[in-house]
């Protein structure tokens, strides 16, 4: 998967987790939703680890940093055009 593809998949998975978490906040006993939420988080975790390995740290104060270079400061940052993938034309 290239970077844009990986970032897109990760963005989708993290968004699923957000929407499911908000649902679970008011339906904490919904086992189906819990199962789905956990499976999304699991897949996102794995993909996030791969992404960070290839393209650098994602979390402030949490992600590992390479010994010889501190990539956190790398540009572009998310609010810049160059950071983002094209959303249009979904399957």
């Amino acid at each position: 998967m290239n970077r844009d593809c990986m970032l897109k998949r990760l963005t989708i998975l993290d968004f699923l987790a957000v929407d499911l978490q908000l649902y679970l906040d008011s339906h904490p006993d919904d086992e189906n939703a819990i199962t789905k939420y956990n499976s999304v988080v699991d897949e996102a975790d794995g993909l996030r680890a791969q992404y960070e390995d290839l393209y650098g740290p994602l979390f402030s104060f949490r992600s590992y940093s390479k010994r010889d270079e501190f990539n956190w400061t790398d540009c572009p940052w998310p609010w810049e055009n160059g950071f983002n993938f094209e959303i249009g034309g979904d399957e």
């Binding site: 963005t11 989708i12 998975l13 968004f15 008011s26 339906h27 979904d90």
Partner: peptide, 15 residues
């Protein structure tokens, strides 16, 4: 209260 029935396909969710 909402009840969980189906979910959209992941690729449809962002849009």
């Amino acid at each position: 209260m909402q009840k969980l029935c189906t979910l959209l396909e992941p690729t449809q969710t962002l849009l």
